[in-house]
Design a protein around this nucleic acid. Sequence first.
DNA 1: TTGTACGCGTTATCAC
DNA 2: GTGATAACGCGTACAA
Lengths: 351, 351
Amino acid sequence: MKKNASPVVAKLGSAPAADVPVTLEMVALRAGVSPATVSRILNGTATVSPVRRQAVDAAIAELGFVPNPVARGLAGGRTFSIGVVTQSIDSPFYGAALRGIEEKLLPLGYSPLFVSGQWRAEVEARCVAVLRSRRVDGIIILTGRLTDKEIKAYAKALPVVVTGRKLSGKGLATLSFDNVEGARMATQHLIDLGHRHIACIAGDSQHPDAVERLRGYRKALEEAGIPYRASLVVEGEFHEQSGLQAVEQLLDSGAKFTAVFASNDQMALGASLGLARRSVRVPEDVSLIGFDDLPVSLYASPPLSTIHQSAYEMGQLAATAMLQLLAGEVPSVEAPAPRLVARESCRRLAP
Amino acid sequence: MKKNASPVVAKLGSAPAADVPVTLEMVALRAGVSPATVSRILNGTATVSPVRRQAVDAAIAELGFVPNPVARGLAGGRTFSIGVVTQSIDSPFYGAALRGIEEKLLPLGYSPLFVSGQWRAEVEARCVAVLRSRRVDGIIILTGRLTDKEIKAYAKALPVVVTGRKLSGKGLATLSFDNVEGARMATQHLIDLGHRHIACIAGDSQHPDAVERLRGYRKALEEAGIPYRASLVVEGEFHEQSGLQAVEQLLDSGAKFTAVFASNDQMALGASLGLARRSVRVPEDVSLIGFDDLPVSLYASPPLSTIHQSAYEMGQLAATAMLQLLAGEVPSVEAPAPRLVARESCRRLAP
DNA sequence: TTGTACGCGTTATCAC
DNA sequence: GTGATAACGCGTACAA
């Protein structure tokens, strides 16, 4: 088995932060060995005699030596940093994913490098370019709008993990949440409560998630033998404001509905406000269900029923997959299944 | 005037991503000049004859050359990356600050490196150690719990910008939001509406922001000649759940109050739910005001009155200050003043 | 103004 | 097993 060099998980802070950088060479000098040997011990690149190993360990501890990642990057070709393309660094949803990635990577000596793609393929491409120029060891892309072709091209140069789609290839791992099933479950929940006139606030039709969730909505209707009505579907843009506008449009259109499925929680929250403004009570007059299960949704008034999608877990899984790719293994991760979280924004339709 | 080397803002992506890295040396070869000249042109380190400059520019464009930051870091001692210690990467409040930092830094060729301190001094110290080991050019610390002494020690080694406190020193810039005034304004708003029995959900007393906001609350009472009552103050932990528990405690204690000042929006949101659970209506029965003006607060039911604190702007300012420090200038930024945002969660007390 | 030569701190390839 | 030695890609004195 070929031993891959591993990141040095330094016990940072254990020794006083030296003001004059301690180099590997100084450690070697002190331990009475060659720099090469110190490097070997640090990376586990070869077997070293216990005697020297001890001497080196001691020297490292005494000097408070911390390897310089910059130099390691130059010499070894690996920077032990992983690029992460998120869409906006302050997204309430993807934020949890970033946390998952960070928690998984940091203890192993890898640092995530976060950049925001703004849901714009062009910006995302620039992000990838920045990351590559910074010589990251791999790239995790959280959904976004790059084409499959572009993704595959990147994967030829370095390991890539991408969420929100299904692709295959060497050095490439994908992690796709079942949006269709999630949306189907949400709609089914409303149907189970007796609703037949169910409006849908869809997402931006350019957005793959939006398309899938709309499909799930239709699927549930179909299975229940409820006719699909285009007049009950309004397209939003995945943010609160558009959810608010969507319900207004729905209300103004005069269409009758007793329940609303919003394609994400942010739009559901906006819808909730929009309904309240028109004196439509949730859930007394209209049931409302969202998608994503944002932390705040639990504290909405009323607490929002939704489809739980653990961004945190997705982040951890993506990081895990990246580590596997880096180790030359075949990634063995699968996205968690959607789960219905029934809270207080939906109620059984009065007969 | 000494010309400082500046980050190369490469037109990334303009040329096809070369699979074999193009080095500065290759550019030099192609342009028929020495590597040093190419380097000079890249960094503006010296004046170069227009002829060669053109030749080099052409070569760079044709080869799609992108300088290797890793090598630049090793050679020049600067990595053009800025460490950012936030407290949790998925904080709804600080997220906006990260965006502000990113937007300010990226166009100038700097990359932010985000790490989470978890509101634990010990973790924050480790974060700083990681950042320093990665040879960042400077560190931005968003509040947190490090001692002033530690901050100052860091600032001796590299430029530091820190929010949430007032310090001075060479290579150090601070940016402190006026929490006392903000809390005073919030409480004053309630007083102006006729409230005299105003409860306060304070933050964790270990947290400097919490202490200051509590002080602002007391200040407003004092100015209005309203006696301070400890029984109306409950300590929370700055998250929704603790806000909910706080109002329950308040309600259970039997204390009379017609308004609540929550030390941040997250607790206000929790409080809102807690009140609703006990059939206490906002704002009909109790007025509620928060602090921070999170994006979601606008979509709470009812929309939450609060004190606007632009984390985004703070982020931008912090980044600006860092750039100034890096340029050897004296930072000239000041935190924006708190601003009352009156929405629908507060109403005039019926006589 | 321009080129040469060396150094940055580490890893990898050889010999031994 | 271990130690020289040569890269890694770029910045920068220094000399020309």
